[in-house]
Nucleic acid binder design. Structure first.
Lengths: 337, 337
DNA sequence: CATTGAGGTCGAAACGTTTCGATTTTTCGG
DNA sequence: CCGAAAAATCGAAACGTTTCGACCTCAATG
């Protein structure tokens, strides 16, 4: 049933060595022997047994992606698009993507350790990096290739793909200030997440550069996605002096905020302006369409792979760092006061 | 650096065989030898080289998932949740998930063939099944384990997880008719997709069982997601005698429809009622909240794995088939005429 | 005391590649 | 037409497991 190198060797009357070298494109095989071998191989339906190859070459030809199970994960469309880019690029490289998640009993870090030791992957793609991420320390200790989605801090000397969230939020605040807004609130995720922290920083920078006061009561942090967006907004609208604009750290929070505003009979873009972050497909299809910061999620996914690939092929000498600056897309959820 | 069985054998003064059997829980090693070996193994940080094991055992301990690249894929939140369930269950089994996608030059089927031959996975999870799906024929030909998400037809004798979309859409139509609607339109995806076909069938059944005429001009098919929802709806509202209700084959289409309705200054749930399908998280957070059919996406993902697992462990003798009946969730996007 | 059998342990082969070094064949200048 | 260099091919070892059958030890049995 299964066709091996030996079978092809028999069928062609050549040695296993020669067949192997021919199929792998070495130049010390005569041109017509190569062709003969190739023809026979496809005729027999030969495909190399990857486990044997991996054992011998000590490479897995695979990247690993361990998704945290503590949060909503894929329910974030941005992450979904990012993943889609990762998969496309990996397929282009002819590699595999190995996705897993810690089970309850697994210690998180143990799982990484096990993956390293059992040689299942050549490198990791790290998502949802936090400040002082222990995974990064672990991987660096073991000198194991990886690329992070998001910096842990500003002095990172490893490869990553990140966004300039701070710049993005400054753009959003500038846009709202230009429209005449003075009381601008911010809906954030927990600040342990690098991503959220950077964006909030941009919010604060934006206010300050426009000479506006920073009012801590206008910054609310929620754990969940749409739900938080709605609840946080209700909380903000209940303030004695409610904001006229809300910047949310991602589109889902923004959409939750919009629904809370509309449920009170207010009009988004008129009574209260709202901005998001990520520019997920949906943000163009809610009503009113959402003003947001565009991030090329799919491309960033590809970039992650490219960077990791470079780290591995350069044997750790290169550690490419990519920073993407978001672009403000003005739609109808923001308007003059 | 890397620790092998031989290292553990040396460290304990035992043979490789014994160490292997001890770590794999065979009962022919003395209880204290086993403990000694286990202790030493963890002390040294031993983890089996999976590539060697796989070569020897001829099992990959991995499932494969090849996502089509021709459509939007992950931008469907339902699919994202499904995938999340798949990953959780696979992790519980201690297996791997191998995700890939055809590159442009790859013939779609060739990729499956290559995966089978190179022994990278023990079975496939098939998504986006179509009527007369060639992948199913291929896998059956090769006697290779798989589970399909969606039946190809009604006489399937392979393992699958599917929904009763027909029943679901009947529920939606009944609900709308009870509210007094008589002109009900349907926004579908291409009918080559089993999923869409079943749902449209439910729409037709529902009309007929309520003694309503089936008007072909009220059934529109679009290729894309939110965009199609919007465009199809505009087309419907332009009809000389427009519908008072729209059933969409998924939530994203429904949300697109809602935005088209609202853009014309009409009120969803009052002037035009809208229903969706899937009950993605978001549908509860748009305004008005969407009436839809709930599908347990995450659980269905787990079920896919469980079924595939059963197919493999039973050596193809068992081929579990699972059908999930959706549940109507009434929210505010539907109301009396 | 000799025999049996169970309980432990082990050596060696095999899984299907890749690759080093050696060997055979061809080419070609002198 | 010789001999050396270049081209083409090959044998065998190795990667790290699992597993079959053999082996050894020792207690129990007749």
């Amino acid at each position: 049933m299964k066709v091996t190198l030996k079978d092809v060797a028999h069928a062609t009357g050549l040695s296993v060595t020669t067949v192997s070298r021919a199929l792998n494109g070495f130049d010390d095989v005569a041109i017509d022997t190569r062709e003969h071998i190739m023809a026979k191989a496809t005729q027999l339906g030969y495909a190399p047994n990857l486990n044997a190859r991996r054992l011998k070459t000590q490479r897995a030809d695979a990247f690993g992606l361990i998704v945290p199970n503590e949060d909503l994960r894929f329910s974030d469309p941005f992450f979904a698009d990012l993943l889609s880019g990762v998969i496309d690029q990996i397929a282009d490289y002819g590699l595999e993507l190995n996705i897993t998640t810690p089970t309850e009993k697994d210690a998180y870090l143990e799982l990484y350790l096990n993956y390293i030791r059992s040689r299942r992957v050549d490198g990791f793609i790290l998502v949802r990096t936090t400040a002082d991420d222990p995974r990064i320390a672990l991987l660096q200790d073991h000198n194991f290739p990886f690329v992070a989605f998001g910096r842990a801090d500003e002095t990172a000397d490893f490869s990553f793909v990140d966004e300039d969230g701070t710049d993005g939020f400054r753009q959003a605040v500038d846009h709202l200030v230009a429209l005449g807004h003075r009381r601008i609130a911010c809906i954030a995720e927990p600040r342990t997440l690098t991503k959220s922290r950077q964006r909030v920083q941009g919010y604060i920078d934006g206010l300050m550069s426009n000479a506006l006061p920073v009012d801590e009561s206008l910054i609310v942090e929620g754990r969940f996605r749409q739900r938080s967006g709605r609840e946080s907004t209700e909380q903000l609208l209940d303030l004695p002096n409610p904001p006229t604009a809300i910047v949310a750290v991602n589109d889902l929070l923004a959409i939750g905020a919009m629904s809370a505003i509309q449920d009170r009979g207010l009009t988004v873009g008129k009574d209260v302006s709202v901005t998001g972050f990520d520019d997920i497909t949906l943000s163009n299809y809610v009503s009113p369409a959402l003003t947001t910061l565009h991030m090329p999620a799919h491309d960033m996914g590809r970039q992650l792979c490219q960077n990791l690939h470079k780290v591995i092929t350069s044997n750790g000498k290169e550690r490419p760092q990519t920073i993407v600056v978001p672009k403000l897309i003005v739609r109808n959820s923001t308007g003059p006061v």
